[in-house]
Design a binder for these strands. Structure first.
Length: 120
RNA sequence: UGAGUUGGCCAGGCAAUCGCUGUUGUUUUUAAACAGCAGAGGAAAGUCCGGGCUCCACAGAGCACAGUGCCAGGUAACGCCUGGGGGGCGCGAGCCUACGGAAAGUGCAGCAGAAAAUAUACCGCCCUACAUGCCUUAACCGGCAUGAGGGUAAGGGUGAAAUGGUGCGGUAAGAGCGCACCGCAUGGGUGGUAACACGCCAUGGCGAGGUAAACCCCACUGGGAGCAAGGCCAAAUAGGGAUCCAAUGGUGUGGCUCGCACUGGAUUCGGGUAGGCUGCUUGAGCAGACUGGUGACAGACUGCCCAGAUGAAUGAUUGCCCUCGACAGAACCCGGCUUAUGGCCAACUCUUCAU
RNA sequence: UGGGGUGUCGCCAAGUGGUAAGGCAACGGACUCUGACUCCGUCAUUCGUAGGUUCGAAUCCUACCACCCCAG
């Protein structure tokens, strides 16, 4: 169980990294509550950026909770993912789910990424 | 038992595994690894007040503007807190209270009502050796009605509000016109630091209505902007062309004037741009017991260091226990206020029943 | 995080202490064979919420709620 860490090298650190993903996404996957943009990178492990807007999740405690759940889901499945930059955006109503459902919701999408990658 | 008032306390705990941030130590490839320690709140919230800090002048003067407004104290300061006074609410414990000035001036009061701030008089009441008519009488006298002139403010009705209240005397009818009691005002006395209080004394028949969260007057307070402040480093604002205006001018973040500091300014052509570090946590700090004070609080002593992120850190899973865990997440920092919210404890009040 | 602003009928709105204008929409009626146009009428238990000041508050004061804008 190495590779379960979540150091800074596995995060998107400045706005230019986010810009790249937004401008030229190689794939996008979504369901009712979450949208994932992804861009393939040549080397290293996957990197994550999270955007949870005040408009979609109004209260600060709920925003923090959602972000933690997303990071946790990414951290535990990171080693199985291809090397790419991901930006996970929340949609309206995400805060109405409890932690378990929210986790399931994200895992579903990450599974899809894994499947797509393995078929290529 | 039920209902309520006030004050205080806590904010699930423990263990294991995997992760995040800071810091200390060790190792080395100077960026990581390992180990230890620390890691959101009572409201972190709303941004409603007050400060610290930073720049503008070292924050100055006058006007304007804004705020505060019973008294005394506390505090760095406050619109906060404590104690007290007046008024109001509640059976009570208690709670609420923008609570200075209306004889400095200006304004406002719809509808209703006679009249809305000037004192007057609609329905009334009363008087007249005034006029007319009628009744009565032999006639005068007398009575009634209407009008005229006058005296009244008792009663009626309107309104949120109508020029002290009740009683007795008095009168043509009435009226603080007089008296008693109550209320009010002024001056004094006593108590209290004071606000104010008084079953104290004297004087005044009572003249001055309401509204200042209307303008205003009085007293006190306030310069402006805000960490996206500001500072440092690298780079850059360079240099140049054209036009216009002007040295009692222009700029300096606030409304005006002064003062102070700096200094030509505006438009346009073309050219260039990149961020990082710091501020950033030791402070009106926290804990303990002591002293002074009714209390807010203050003083001295001992001990402690207790988040500092910056695409933004506290989570996930499992086990055990209990009452099965509400509101909610720091972004420069403090003191308050307000709002959201789960539970526990203590004191007190009312009520039901029992003794 | 800081600074500023706005809430009045379904929509746009006037009102700055004394019965809350107006337009669009909606509804009912008239005109028409039927529609459109036009004409007439109806529509605010209360001005975002809760307290207070006042005889009286959309308006003045205080607290809160919601929404919008600006600053990298």
């Amino acid at each position: 169980m190495e590779n379960q860490g979540f150091p800074k090298s596995c995060r998107l650190l400045d706005s230019s990294a986010y810009e790249d993903v937004f401008n030229k996404p190689d794939f996008r996957i979504s369901n009712k509550y979450i949208l994932i943009l992804g861009r393939k990178t040549p080397m290293g492990s996957a990197r994550l950026g999270v955007i949870v807007s005040k408009k979609n999740v109004a209260r600060a405690t709920a925003r923090n909770r959602v972000k933690r759940v997303i990071r946790e889901a990414f951290r535990t499945t990171k080693s199985l993912l291809p090397s790419c930059d991901l930006v996970i955006l929340s949609r309206k109503g995400l805060d109405s789910l409890d932690n378990e459902k929210c986790r399931a919701c994200i895992d579903e999408l990450l599974e899809e990424i894994k499947r797509k990658h393995s078929t290529e």
